[in-house]
Amino acid sequence: MKVKRITLFVGHYGSGKTNIAVNYAIALAKTRNPVALADLDIVNPYFRSKDSLADLEAAGVRLIASPYAGGNLDIPALPQEMYAVTDDKNLTAILDVGGDDRGALALGRLTPAILAENDFACLAVVNRYRPLTRTPADTVEVLREIEGAGGVPITGLVNNSNVGRETTPEDVLDSLAYAAEVSRLTGLPVVMTTVDRGVYPALSGKIPDLFPLDLQKKIG
């Protein structure tokens, strides 16, 4: 997959967007500079990319986040530096967008500039083991709502089907047909299958575009 200047991660809440965005930014920073991760999540103040600040800084990723993110306040504020994503064309930018259509709404401020520049990938994270996206049809409905609210067309799918720590390689393999059906219904390619580092060896070589994730934990 050719890396676009801006990569957006959208999806149902709890699908794994933040964890993937953090891991993806850290991986990109190995070959690119400068890389920035912008936290646009104004829906859930609990699990934030700021929890991974130390890892991001160590990898050389600049974190653009609201000063209130990860704190004790629930203030739905966007980071003041977020316009760097569209203004600074030198930047490779990852956007961690909030869950569902409500979360994607926050994109609106950036959407015109993102579309005008037209160097973006908008990746929808899907997990068939989440209760409200268990069927391909339900998943497509959520993705349409997100596109409608955020205004950025989804260009690809990330299959992040997992049941947390208890995920087995079979759980991931069982999800491939689901991801393929979402792909068929939407006409969008599955650009990545993301799995926890623990099950990665068992699946390596069996699934194309497999991407290992190190779980980012909530701190504080």
């Binding site: 997990n127 989440r130 209760p131 268990r134």
Partner: peptide
């Protein structure tokens, strides 16, 4: 139905 991955809040609701 197999296992699903849920937040505590969702588990209450469902």
């Amino acid at each position: 139905e197999k296992k699903v991955l849920m937040k505590g809040n969702e588990a209450i609701a469902e």
